Computed example of a mutant assay.
Amino acid sequence: MHLKYAEFIYPSSWVGDQTLLYREVRKAELQRSLDPPPIGRSPSRPRNFSEPVAAFGPPGSSGELNVSVIVSPVPQDFTIEAFGGPKDVGEVVLRRIARTRKSPDINATLIDAALREDAENVKYYKLEFRVESPSFRRHNVAVCCARNGKLYTMNAQAPESAWESIQKEFAAMADSFSLVVDA
C-alpha cells in the first residue's frame, strides 16, 4: 500500500492560500533555469522548518482564521506513539509553541487530546488548545499522524473571539483529516 495524499473537509467558502502556490512556482522555475544565479547572490539555504503544503481561509481575511497542512520528514520507523498518548504529545506541542515564540508572555493551554485510529492502523492525535499573549488570543485544533517517514500535521486556528461560531467547522475538519492509501 502506498500513500497517495491527505484529505479533509473545510468550509466551502474558504479559498486556497495563493502564497503557497507562488512559492512552489518560484521553486520550480529556479530548478529548471539554465541561467546561473545573479552575481553576489548566494544560493538559498534550506530552511530548518517545514512550511505548509496546503492552506485555506476565508477570502480577503488577514490569515488569523485558517487551516493548514504541514508534511515534515521523520525517520522511516517514526511513530507518534513513541512520544506517548495524545495528552503527552499535546504537552510537547505546547512547550514547542512557547519556545518557538521566545516570549515569556506566551501562555499555551491544552484543552483536549484524543486518539482516533483508521482501518490502516494509522493513529491520529487530535489536540485542542489555546495560545494567548498580550497581543493575541487564538484557539487551535490540530491533528497529527505519521506514516512512511513523514509527519502530517493539520492545524486550524481562529481568533478566540471567533471560536464559538467556528468550533463545529473545526471539529469537522479535524475529524475528516485522513491519509489516503491506494491498495
Rank of each mutant, 00 (worst) to 15 (best):
D175I: 09
R26V: 15
P86K: 08
V67W: 02
G40Y: 01
L30G: 14
V141S: 03
H2I: 05
N107G: 01
V92P: 01
P104A: 01
N140R: 08
D88Y: 03
E120D: 15
L179N: 05
S133V: 01
V131C: 01
P58H: 10
I97P: 02
E7V: 08
S103Y: 09
D35F: 13
P43A: 12
R138A: 00
L110W: 12
Q167F: 09
S161G: 12
P11E: 03
G40T: 00
S44Y: 05
G63H: 03
Y10F: 11
D182S: 11
P104S: 10
S161L: 13
I166Q: 15
L30C: 04
Y5A: 02
E169W: 06
G149W: 01
S33N: 05
S44D: 05
V53K: 06
M154S: 07
F136R: 08
L20F: 11
L3D: 06
K123C: 04
G149M: 07
I39C: 12
D182W: 07
R45C: 07
A82C: 07
Q76A: 15
Y5D: 02
G85K: 03
V141T: 07
Y22L: 08
G60R: 07
P52E: 00
S103W: 04
G149V: 08
F129R: 00
L21F: 03
F136I: 07
V180I: 04
E7R: 03
A172Q: 09
S68F: 11
W163L: 02
S103F: 09
F78C: 11
V53N: 03
